[in-house]
Nucleic acid binder design. Sequence first.
DNA 1: CGATAATGATACGGCCCCGTAACGATCGGG
DNA 2: CCCGATCGTTACGGGGCCGTATCATTATCG
Lengths: 117, 117
Amino acid sequence: MALEIKPSQALKLWRQVHLDLVQDAHSDLSVRQTAILLTIYLELPPHTVRGLASRLGVTKPVITRALDSMGKLGLVSRRRDETDKRNVVIQRTVAGALAVEHLADLVTARARELGPA
Amino acid sequence: MALEIKPSQALKLWRQVHLDLVQDAHSDLSVRQTAILLTIYLELPPHTVRGLASRLGVTKPVITRALDSMGKLGLVSRRRDETDKRNVVIQRTVAGALAVEHLADLVTARARELGPA
DNA sequence: CGATAATGATACGGCCCCGTAACGATCGGG
DNA sequence: CCCGATCGTTACGGGGCCGTATCATTATCG
């Protein structure tokens, strides 16, 4: 079930998708923001600031600021946890799901174009 | 010859490698810098500032600054073209080759761990 | 030789992100 | 009921990257 990929293929894939990302004006996410976004959309909810911070090995302000900027882009939203009002629950959005899906399409399309070497 | 990868696998791979990159203190390259680095190491030399700029669809100062910062990290080096002293030839370095190889290992290792879904 | 073009670097103002430290709000145990 | 612990946010100073405009150097062509 493992995905077999040669190092040279991995590099070509990584480069090509990064070229796409650089030229795509809409995707302006940093590496950290991308890691946060994908964690929110791939791992089971609920997601909290503290949980994401420890999951990524970064400080809490990093998460707060990333949620701020990604929130402005409509990729995520926040809501107070009513059972424990100290917590903030990070929620997915339609725009965020579309962005993630777009990334998936990009990677799969570029993988499909890879040669054997 | 094409690499078959499902969208869900692509996302898991992308997320896991990004998590690795975030937690690896040494790799602090932006998306643009990564695209530049991989282009230098995967495409045939010679590489020039102008060539990379048009290849990536960015302005020349972006390339100059990226070469400055990556040069400080020892990932690339620059040399004047003696036949046309207006040009600068970007050269690979041992450290840069190791960094690229490290990235390739990262991607291939994470791909190998992917499940079927 | 002189004017023009081309190349890469630099200056500038602006924006975003970082890490540390502190803060207000909320919860929970004694 | 209160005091400490926890949660997320904000303040602060610093640094990096951005795009535009401009610059010095070098090549080219009439």
